[in-house]
Amino acid sequence: MLDARLAGDTLPVGDLPLCKVLLMRDRRYAWLVLVPRRSGMVEVADLDPDEREALWREVDSASAALRTVEPCDKLNIGALGNIVRQLHVHVVARVEGDAAWPGPVWGHGAAEPYGAGEAEQKVASLRTALGLS
C-alpha cells in the first residue's frame, strides 16, 4: 500500500518489476519517486540482496528515462525517509538555476502544479522512455 503522502504528492507513471514509478506533482523539477511494492519496507537494507540489486537497476533506468525526457546538468538521487517512512527513492533531474539550485529540492518552497495536459504529456513521455508504453 502506498503511503498517503506519496499518493497525494505524485502521479502514477507505471510499474517496473520491483518498484512503482511516480512523478512528483511539482512542475519546477523533473522528479521521479520509485517505491518498492513490498509492504513494511523502510530502509534499503530491508530488501533482500536480489531486490537491492533490482532497486538500483530500476533507479538507473529511471535516471536514464528522466535524462531523455528532461536533459539536465545533474541528477540527485536520495532515499531520505525522514517524513515518509515507506521506502522510496527520489530521482531528480536538476538544471543549474532551477528554483532550488544549488541546494536540495526537498522542502524548498511550495510545489507548482502542472498546467492542463502538461503532467499527462510528461507521464506519457516517461512511460515511453521507461519502455512501459
Rank of each mutant, 00 (worst) to 15 (best):
D9Y: 03
Q86F: 01
A116D: 15
V35T: 12
L6R: 02
A64V: 04
L126R: 13
A79I: 07
E96F: 13
P102G: 08
A30E: 10
R38M: 07
N82V: 06
A129F: 06
K74A: 06
H108Y: 12
V69H: 08
P71A: 01
H108P: 09
T10D: 06
V91M: 01
L80A: 00
A100F: 09
R127Y: 05
L75G: 08
A4D: 12
A119C: 08
G107H: 04
S39F: 07
R52F: 14
A110Y: 12
D98P: 12
D73F: 10
R127K: 14
M1E: 15
W106M: 00
V89I: 05
L55M: 00
Q121S: 07
Q86N: 12
V91W: 02
H90M: 00
S63Q: 09
D60G: 11
A7P: 11
T10G: 10
A65V: 01
E112S: 13
G14A: 04
G117D: 03
G109W: 13
L2W: 03
L2S: 01
W106L: 04
L130I: 10
K122G: 04
A124Q: 11
T68V: 11
D46M: 10
T128D: 15
E43V: 11
E70I: 07
L6F: 07
G117M: 01
R27H: 09
V69Y: 11
D9S: 12
L47Q: 12
P36R: 15
G14S: 05
G97A: 00
P71I: 03
E53A: 15
V91Y: 04
Q86G: 05
D26V: 11
L22D: 04
P17F: 03
V84R: 08
P12S: 15
T68H: 08
T68R: 13
